[in-house]
Design a protein around this nucleic acid. Structure first.
Length: 897
RNA sequence: GCGCACGUGGCGGAAUGGUAGACGCGCUGGCUUCAGGUGCCAGUGUCCGCAAGGGCGUGGAGGUUCGAAUCCUCUCGUGCGCACCA
């Protein structure tokens, strides 16, 4: 890079930095992006009415990492900023702010190794991130920023927990209700009864214990091969007393309401799969040990059930095992118990043993053998299946391995060999057969239609220090008691040691020990909860990282309210449904697809509970979701497989890559310190300026697609902004050179075509093509040397969402005194959208043979005549008979011979 | 194994079923410059041809259509999700 620009007032990185910091200071001083609320401390002080049209836009908020940002991080923030700025120019009251998801493992690990309090480290990281992001010029309302660790925020996280704790799900009403109404309904306040209904409850049940992390984890945080998503440590099933959230009560609504939100289909599919609702039937098979209940999604194939299989853990196994089989079954169960879930899954070969008993198939009275096999899981359905080798590949495989019979019941899509004296399914379709047999089973009392879910309740407690404490104490009988609002927030005590007790990652028999449990004088408290001072024990687990992100959208709408989580008027204005049947929710939520199941499912669940309890008017937190892609980068390894700094790798003429003269291998992946391929926003600010970085990131490709970062291409965006600058400013004198002469007709046509296209692209989040159109306009104006105010003003306004600092500077130079933030976005004048002539393509047999310049109003006949008059067209027709002429006036004529 | 998404120049990517490759990077040439850099102008899918023009071309093979990158079927490849879920 040359140090001396040839022109003193060229738009260089240094000039950009000057413009950018001046405007950032001014926006901050003037409170330009502060969005007024209907009521409360953020309401207009002069009582002014708000615009009815609002736009609430949100980014998935960041964890403030200690290593700072790389250029991949701001992609989504820039995109939402462009949308927000554009919506302001469309007259909307735009709510856009950024908070910090500040509880998290890295700060705790840092604390353990350095002794620095995780809060201090986290707050320092937030400050650094705010600095990096401020330099991008994001139009956020700074008054609405918060961190999930702020005591004021924690207070409301705990308050929401108590709302959930103090509720139960009424299946008849199909919604949550206050626990007091259950007490009334059941006529008892006995915790032994009531506590089993709560939406947040303690239970002793099999949970995911991760010794390597020293904590238990939710199902959503465990990978398919039973390892922790964070850290990749082994996870074991252990029976432990832990807090759970009754998210399963909401399974149906969580599935059904996916149809009412504007989300990417893959995310909806992932949530549907995770919830895993399947309709089927429970059927009872009579046996010597009593009825065996099975769940099946294919009750239509019941006539083909030739045996039954129980999971090794099934409670009826002992009773069904005959003395002759006792040893074999006991041995098999021992073997199965010794295996981890992973080992069970690794061995895809079907194994199992006979119990020696038979059960009765209710449709035909057949005695079918009952077996035990570990391919049937205790955790799903009833832990027992009817096996239909003709209908199920797994059953067929097992039948073959065990030498069990198969009866054909399916022929293509219809049922065969499926009748008894009372009912026949023969000839019916699968759907009809299901309905028929369920009706018959219900009449017989042998079964009923039913629905099962894969979703399990949400394990909500963690044995870590750096999380929200539960607002719960236990009395001397061990009953959990929710603390009153007046005692919130419950703050974390200072501790001498932040670590949970961690163990050898494979030590499955170890027990979790929360760090808070060691702070005896915090744990044991004397409180007056209404019946005089008494001794209580505090809950020593903390909440998972997901707690704060499960409701933060609400707090943006009323961030300082000390009385309620958000004032109903503010919630209704920003989040409430605007059309009948709408769920309401954030107008646009942008973030990565990695939160498809975890965060987005939890947030929907909490929001629905708050809706049921009347605290919010919206049924869903996020009306529209958009998954942005990722910026990835190339990384290079040398002969030893060690990463070398990517910025010093040279591409040779033959397309290979070298580092310090030695060949290196290229790979493609995430950007990060460990791969030595990070490029930071600070690097780009210094070399090009923030506006150039913004424009480049927006022009790289569609927002939802991942693509590789290429630093050397950034200069293209800088050249574009330099050309815009040069249109209005003399590079040698620094004088504004805008002209008040009217622009040429041609320039106006290009301008209005650009306005039309850019406006549509902005609405559709197609910023890459919007930038392309602005470049075309700029190149045109440069080429014809048109500097008229009438084109430069709309150019500045259209550029404003993308490159706001440069646009503001030009706007000022064009003679305006205020910010352009609230100037109307330009509107295309239809008068200039119709061209004098259009290019008409003439095809023969669908191949282009000529182009005509024609009037846009030319008729079909005129176009046909003109096309046939073309020499090259006649040559292509080559004397053949013209059978048909297809005209799409005025753009196309296709001659068919 | 099942499901979803995606395959277009050297690279990132444009194309309501209607001129394939907008825009940008890179590359080539010209002007500017002592020179480099910056800036500006022109060119840049491929093959045949001096040119006019023509052939081929959106992973592959079929199909629908006057016309297909786009719609349908099969197939190959890449990515993501789920995975013995009855």
């Amino acid at each position: 890079m040359s140090s001396e620009p040839s022109a003193p007032f060229r738009y260089t990185a240094a000039l950009a930095a000057d413009i950018e910091s001046r405007w950032q200071d001014r926006w901050e001083a003037e409170g330009t992006f502060e969005a007024p609320n209907p009521t409360g401390d953020l309401a207009p002080s002069d009582g002014r009415a708000l615009p009815d049209d609002k736009y609430f836009i949100m980014d998935m908020f960041p964890y403030p990492s200690g290593s700072g940002l790389h250029v991949g991080h701001p992609l989504g923030y820039i995109a939402t900023d462009v949308v927000g700025r554009h919506q302001r120019m469309r007259g909307k009251n735009v709510l856009h702010a950024l908070g910090y998801d500040a509880y998290g493992l890295p700060a705790e690990i840092h604390a353990i190794s350095t002794g620095e309090h995780p809060r201090d480290n986290t707050l320092a990281n937030i400050a650094n991130m705010r600095r990096q992001l401020r330099r991008l010029g994001l139009a956020h309302d700074p008054r609405r920023s918060f961190a999930t660790i702020d005591p004021d925020f924690v207070r409301w996280t705990q308050w929401i927990f108590l709302q959930i704790f103090n509720s139960w799900y009424d299946p008849e009403a199909g919604r949550a209700r206050p626990i007091s109404e259950l007490v009334e309904k059941l006529g008892t306040s006995d915790p032994a009864v009531i506590d089993t209904y709560r939406l947040a409850y303690v239970s002793e049940s099999p949970v995911n214990w991760c010794p390597g992390l020293g904590t238990v984890l939710a199902n959503e945080e465990v990978t398919a091969d039973n390892r922790s998503e964070r850290g990749n440590f082994p996870v074991f099933k252990r029976n432990l007393r832990q807090w759970q959230m009754r998210i399963t009560a909401y399974a149906d609504r969580l599935v059904d309401d996916l149809d009412r939100v504007d989300w990417p289909e893959p995310v909806k599919i992932m949530q549907r799969n995770w919830i895993g609702r399947s309709h089927g039937a429970e059927v009872e098979f009579a046996s010597p040990a009593g009825p065996i209940r099975v769940f099946t999604t294919r009750p239509d194939t019941l006539f083909g059930a030739t045996f039954m299989v129980l999971s090794p853990e099934h409670p009826l196994v002992d009773a069904l095992t005959t003395p002759e089989q006792a040893d074999a079954v006991a041995a098999y169960r021992r073997e199965a118990a010794a295996k981890t879930d992973v080992e069970r899954q690794e061995n895809k070969e079907k194994t199992g043993v006979r119990t020696g008993s038979t059960a009765t198939n209710p449709v035909n009275g057949e005695q079918v053998p009952v077996l035990v096999a570990d391919y049937v899981l205790m955790g799903y359905g009833t832990g027992a299946i009817m096996a239909v080798p003709d209908g199920d590949a797994r059953d067929a495989e097992f039948a073959e391995a065990q030498g069990l019979p198969t009866v054909q019941v399916l022929d293509g899509g219809t049922l065969v060999n499926s009748s008894n004296d009372e009912v026949s399914l023969d000839g019916l379709s699968v759907e009809d057969a299901k309905a028929t047999i369920i009706a018959w089973l219900e009449k017989q009392g042998a079964g009923s239609g039913t629905t099962t879910y894969r979703l399990r309740d949400w394990l909500f407690s963690r044995q870590r220090y750096w999380g929200e404490p539960f607002p719960i104490v236990f009395d001397e009988s061990g009953n959990a008691i929710g603390l009153p609002d007046s005692m919130l927030p419950v703050e974390l005590p200072e501790v001498p040691d932040y670590s949970p007790r961690t163990f050898e990652p494979d030590d499955a028999q170890s027990d979790p020990e929360p760090p808070l449990g060691r702070v005896e004088d915090w744990v044991n408290v004397t409180l007056d909860l209404g019946d005089g001072p008494r001794q209580y024990r505090r809950e020593t687990n903390t909440m998972p990282n997901w707690a704060g992100s499960s409701w933060y959208e609400l707090r943006y709408t009323d961030p300082h309210n000390a009385d309620v989580v958000t004032d109903p008027a503010n919630e209704a204005y920003w989040l409430g449904p605007r059309t009948p049947g709408s769920t309401g929710g954030v107008d646009l939520y942008v973030g990565g697809v990695e939160h498809a199941v975890l965060h987005l499912l939890y947030a929907r669940f909490w929001h629905k509970v708050l809706f049921d309890l009347g605290h919010v008017s919206s049924e869903e937190p996020f009306q529209r979701l958009f998954n942005q892609g990722y910026i990835q980068a190339y990384a290079f390894t040398d002969a030893r497989g060690v990463y070398v700094p990517a910025e010093d790798v040279v591409e040779e003429a033959d397309g290979t890559f070298t580092y310090e003269g030695r060949p290196v291998r290229r790979e493609y992946g995430k950007m990060g310190k460990s791969l030595k391929n990070s490029v930071t926003p600070d690097d780009m600010y210094e070399a090009y300026g923030a506006d150039t970085l913004r424009v480049y990131e927006m022009s790289m490709g569609p927002l939802d697609v991942s693509r590789p970062w290429e630093t050397r291409a950034v200069v293209g965006s800088q050249r574009f902004l330099q050309r815009v600058w040069r249109l209005a400013v003399d590079e040698d004198s620094g004088e504004t050179v805008v002209s008040d002469e009217p622009p040429t007709e041609e320039s106006l046509r290009v301008l209005h075509r650009t306005i039309e296209g850019v406006a549509a692209d902005m609405e559709g989040l197609r910023f890459n093509t919007a930038v392309a159109k602005l470049i075309e306009l700029t190149n045109h104006l440069t080429k014809v040397d048109d500097r008229s105010r009438a084109v430069l003003e709309p150019l500045a306004l259209m550029l404003a969402p993308l490159a706001p600092h440069l646009a503001e500077e030009l706007w000022t130079r064009l003679g305006h005194t205020g910010t352009l933030t609230f100037e109307p976005f330009p509107v295309a004048d239809p008068q200039y959208l119709v061209a004098d002539t259009v290019t008409c393509v003439v095809q023969v047999q669908g191949k282009v043979r000529a182009k005509l310049e024609v009037s846009p109003t030319a008729t079909d006949d005129e176009l046909t005549a003109a096309a046939l008059a073309e020499e090259n067209v006649q040559k292509s027709i080559d004397g053949r008979e013209v059978r048909k002429v297809i005209v799409r006036a005025p753009k196309l004529v296709n001659i068919v011979v």
